[in-house]
Design a protein around this nucleic acid. Structure first.
Length: 422
RNA sequence: GCGGCCAUGGCGAAGUGGUUAACGCACCGGAUUGUGGCUCCGGCAUCCGUGGGUUCGAUUCCCACUGGUCGCCCCA
């Protein structure tokens, strides 16, 4: 055993890939109903895109990016998230010329250099959406409801939706400054992490789990108190739309998203079974990002969830996707001549839309029967010397054990009419 | 970047400072000639993550490294 998988990555083996496919298909099905279209962007981008888009002071940019130089001395980075790339593409391809809003989704791997743990990998797969061009709170509500609908249809319940408004470029700085001033006096009592947060991302201090920090921030200025009229109205409208759709949510005034580009609406969806993490989906509005990346002042909102975490949540629920679908036919050939004939028959079965396989290991009949049984085939076709002489095969129903002779010419029609499609 | 726990065959899992490292599952072969699922029999780790050290002797003791896992930070 010489080679091992790199740290923080995982192979999705056939058994598991069924669940992945189920998740992807379910998500795509919902996207279609909501009129979101797929976009595929490169897995790497110019490093500067993420520095600008995600934010210089975020953990992602400061210490988690897979950055490398190519042979042309360009600094490139494996994408750590999807939004910056989509916005880049939106601007570069002038998608703003399309009727607003532009509604996009993507599915693909993301990369962050972190210590792996349950629900956190260095390469992980995100399914995400971006709706660009509208600042209407109704689209915030649409996006949130779409996420919940996807998880519901995947079989997840007991989900917890938390929402908040983090303000905009006019009201957030005011709050931020008051908060920093307030906390500066008690800086020495804050935990080590929060002391550094005070400089980098003071809003996060409000979300600290440390008991001392919690009590110190109890009376601290909240974002909610400082929202400007626009942001307040936007937030109230969003809640109204969620209410009218019957979506229950928890207002969490301390909910802060880690990436710099978020404005106004922020939300998270939590589920059981994701280790210590809990969050399966995070999202929010980013009205300044398109401008930051070189486009016009286009508002946007989006979210992303990771397939890995959905798989964990599904497993925690004991989701059963049912048995793997078995083969229609397994072919057993005995002897050289029969094998040649069987190869042709096998091809013909497949050509006629039947799933079929045969032995390639020169195994004896008993072993081939065993293989047929394991493949959960509905029928077995047996061809040996006798059958070739008669230009017939034996067709055996594996469920009942009944078997009969069928001529080569009638084989496809006979099987096709008897197969139970499943 | 920091901390806890762990590291035996394809998988799960016993075990001991000293000749042949349990067992279960899976897999392969057999139980008379070309027929599965049950049963029975047989096979399947010259080796116990890697490298050092202690020792007459280590898979069992110590150290380092690597990896896994869980948690912190942060996040999907």
């Amino acid at each position: 055993m010489k080679f091992r998988i790199p740290r923080g990555t995982a192979d999705v083996l056939p058994k598991e890939s069924r669940i992945w496919d189920f998740i992807e298909q379910t998500a795509k099905n919902v996207f279609k109903r909501y009129n979101y279209k797929e976009i595929r962007t490169p897995i790497f981008e110019h490093t500067e895109l993420f520095q600008r888009g995600v934010g210089e002071t975020t953990d992602i940019v400061e210490k988690e990016m897979y950055t490398f130089k190519d042979k042309g001395d360009r600094s490139l980075t494996l994408r750590p998230e999807g939004t910056a790339s989509v916005v880049r593409s939106f601007v570069e391809n002038k998608l703003y010329a399309d009727p607003d809003p532009v509604k996009l989704y993507y599915i693909g791997p993301m990369f962050r250099y972190e210590r792996p743990q349950s629900g956190r990998m260095r390469q992980f797969t995100q399914i995400g959406v971006e709706a660009l061009g509208s600042n209407d709170p109704r689209i915030d509500a649409e996006v949130i409801s779409m996420a919940l609908r996807q998880f519901e249809e995947m079989g997840l319940d007991n989900l917890r939706l938390e929402i908040n408004s983090v303000g905009c470029s006019s009201c957030r700085p005011v709050h931020r400054e008051k908060l920093v001033t307030y906390l500066h006096d008690v800086k020495e009592q804050l935990c080590k992490d929060c002391q550094s947060r005070l400089e980098r991302n003071p809003l996060r201090i409000l979300d600290c789990k440390n008991e001392t920090c919690k009590s110190l921030t109890k009376e601290a200025p909240t974002i909610e108190q400082h929202l400007c009229d626009d942001c307040r109205t936007h937030y109230e409208d969003l809640k109204g739309h969620l209410d009218s759709m019957g979506i229950s949510y928890i207002e969490n005034p301390r909910l802060v998203r880690g990436l710099d580009y978020y404005t106004q609406t922020a939300f998270e969806i939590m589920a059981e079974g994701i280790g210590a993490i809990g969050t399966i989906c995070g999202g929010g509005r980013y009205n300044g990002l398109v401008g930051e990346i070189g486009g016009n002042d286009v508002p946007g909102i989006g979210y992303a969830f990771s397939i890995e975490r959905i798989v964990l949540a599904l497993k925690a629920k004991g989701i059963d996707l049912g048995l793997e679908q078995g083969l229609d036919v397994y072919l057993i050939a005995l002897g050289q001549e029969a094998k040649t004939v069987a190869t042709k028959i096998l091809d013909n079965l497949r050509k006629n839309k039947l799933s079929a396989d045969m032995d390639y290991l020169d195994r004896k009949m008993k072993a081939q029967m065993k293989a047929a049984d394991r493949s959960d085939a509905q029928y077995v076709i047996i061809i040996g010397e006798d059958e070739i002489a008669k230009q017939k095969v034996i067709l055996r129903n594996m469920e009942t054990g009944d078997q009969k002779e069928v001529s080569f010419d009638d084989l496809i029609e006979t099987i096709s009419s008897q197969i139970i499609k499943r």
